[in-house]
């Protein structure tokens, strides 16, 4: 897929959100789009998805099946989560049961009877993820996919990305939280001042730790050490209280 001389602005008198973007994505590649809030990451992703139409230039060789996960899932709809996903499978020309696989995998089974407007933000986001994956997209576009997701759901995303790219698909995702360290082999683009440039991968976050002193009953000491270590904390030492 190629971006050829892409320019975009949200109105004739508006400033350019993106200028002269030339870039390409190869099959099997994952691209992480970096940039501060409002830099134009979402705009670039929506141009890639075909949701927005470039003011100038074109997106060429876009795969026929595109899955787009918007930054915020539109939950203001009178459907339950299950009904919505089954209907979206039908809209995509698939059997409604195709949605069930993703309902299972994204741990949505307990929420299928809940109205979209009553879902928590993270669960609604998972519904947004599921609707994009039903059709087995050749291009998956994830706009801030980690936003609002719980710890378990976060761990699912790298696997899903790997599945799409392993099947020869492409993945474009934006991230301003530095979570992309979880996605190995991704290339990085930086959007700044309305232009796009390749970027080095962001450095892994430095270990940022504090030391907390905790007093524990002597009888519970062994158990506390084991439990803290199991939670990933480093136990620096054990000493008598009051010294």
């Amino acid at each position: 897929m190629r971006f050829e001389g892409l320019w975009f602005r949200y109105g004739r008198r508006a400033d350019w959100t993106l200028q002269a973007v030339d870039a390409s994505v190869e099959p099997g590649q994952t691209v992480v789009v970096l940039g501060r809030n409002g830099a134009g990451k979402s705009t670039l992703l929506q141009l890639a998805a075909g949701v927005l139409r470039p003011s100038r230039g074109a997106v060429r060789d876009r795969p026929p099946v595109v899955g787009w996960v918007p930054e915020r899932f539109p939950a203001d709809q009178p459907f339950t989560a299950g009904d919505y996903l089954h209907r979206m499978a039908l809209v995509r020309g698939h059997d409604p049961s195709q949605a069930d696989e993703w309902i299972e995998r994204l741990l949505l089974a307990d929420h299928t009877g809940t109205r979209l407007s009553d879902l928590s933000k993270g669960t609604a986001q998972k519904v947004g993820l599921a609707q994009a994956l039903i059709a087995r997209p050749g291009l998956l576009i994830l706009d801030e996919p980690w936003e609002g997701l719980d710890a378990v759901a976060r761990t699912l995303i790298p696997g899903i990305v790997a599945e799409v790219t392993a099947a020869g698909g492409m993945v474009l995702l934006s991230d301003h939280r530095g979570e992309t360290a979880r996605i190995p082999g991704a290339i990085h683009w930086q959007v700044a001042d309305a232009t796009l440039a390749p970027a080095p991968p962001p450095p892994a976050p430095a270990r940022d730790e504090v030391v907390i002193e905790v007093a524990v009953r002597r009888a519970d000491a062994d158990e506390a050490v084991v439990r803290l270590r199991a939670q990933g904390h480093a136990v620096l030492g054990v000493r008598e209280a009051g010294r």
Binding site: Q46, A49, G50, V51, V66, G67, W68, P70, R72, F73, P74, Q77, M88, V91, R92, Q131, A135
Partner: peptide, 10 residues
Amino acid sequence: VQRRLARVAV
């Protein structure tokens, strides 16, 4: 946004 999702789908 749902209208845009429909646009991507069909």
